[in-house]
Nucleic acid binder design. Structure first.
Lengths: 205, 205
DNA sequence: GTCTATACATCGATAGAC
DNA sequence: GTCTATCGATGTATAGAC
């Protein structure tokens, strides 16, 4: 969904290549996804792909961009105001995280991230900065404000941000694993709410 | 280190293949590791490999075995006795986990696990049962006993086991990522201890 | 048990006609 | 922009001599 103009639903070949590649990469990873498979799925010959992308790596990097451009931190609202909500903020944050976890598009991206994390240095760096540090930074600020307003006990904001985020990540990984094999993730999905409850009880004054 | 007999330090070709393969697989994953590379590293021709292993898949499965056979839960001591130690048990558990995280051998295995987790169904199932559920089970038993002895507050043992374990996993992932790119993981390594402190304060009576 | 030689599939990528 | 044709590299695996 390009946000520049309104039209632009033109199913250009380039867009189709990107869409198909995203699906293939996220299921099989970089190496197992061949230009031939992409071409076949798109409905053109391999050589035609090179009219749109320089090479396979360029397609992958374009796909990889989408991993972190997703609305991970679209909640850039007013942090100060949000923080004053206390527990409600955490509940909202987790709900957002949960929605991403169960969103088909984001699920594919997360899977791709996991597959390529140890095979692509650029992706690792992006993971650290865009995924981890960005979230830790926002949470730290929020927790700091909560402490100032005596909503929670005084502790190292970064440390408790880490505690809060790490469990979310682990639940997400497990859910994605389960759903990949078409197993039900119902039981797991309640872990999100349980986590908020437990965590809030751990930090509140 | 085979534990059956004492000798057996014979650097047989088969063992060398396994060793080399483990290193290559854990860095590049299954597909990117070719029989040619393995052969070259071992110092023989590709065809000679087939005297020891049926095919590439067989080598990989042999390597994969090592992922979960490592001393992940070697602490099968007396659970009841351990649980009564309260916080000290958790500290020991985390220390074990930390040692594994920084052990070169286990680091490779963990990396391999992450790379292949979404590309090998068998590995996913093993991860769930051997890595996740096994740890959750042990921790749940321990926490249950702690509750019975009024060392910690009454809560769902599985839930708090999940909370405890998930952060350990996340720290481990981060440490492994950092060390893969030769970055220092010193700052991160203290997260293990911080986690125990925070967690214990959250559950103790 | 290791070698040479080879088979054969698939890979990413390019040249040039249309 | 897409096609056919083709390249060279790389992939797994086998046959048979030593």
């Amino acid at each position: 969904m390009p946000n520049n103009t309104t039209l632009h639903k033109k199913n250009s070949t380039k867009e189709k290549i990107l869409k198909v590649s995203t699906a293939l990469f996220s299921v099989s990873g970089y190496r197992a996804t061949s230009m031939r498979k992409i071409a076949k799925e798109v409905g053109i010959r391999e050589s035609a792909i090179y009219n749109h992308y320089k090479n396979k790596e360029e397609i992958f990097l374009e796909v990889a961009k989408g991993i972190f451009s997703s609305p991970f931190t679209k909640e850039e609202l007013d942090i100060k105001e949000s923080a004053l909500k206390g527990k409600v903020f955490l509940q909202n944050f987790v709900m957002q995280y949960k929605l991403l976890t169960f969103d088909k598009n984001n699920e594919n991206m997360f899977r791709l991230l996991m597959i390529e994390l140890f095979q692509n240095k650029e992706l690792r760096e992006q993971f650290m900065s865009e995924f981890h540090e960005k979230n830790i930074k926002i949470l730290s600020e929020v927790f700091f404000i909560m402490m100032q307003n005596s909503l929670i006990r005084s502790q190292d904001p970064m440390m408790i941000s880490y505690e809060f985020l790490s469990t979310l990540f682990y639940i997400r990984l497990q859910v994605t694993l389960m759903r990949f094999d078409n197993n039900s993730a119902n039981l797991l999905s309640t872990q999100f709410e349980k986590h908020v409850e437990f965590f809030w009880e751990s930090i509140r004054v």
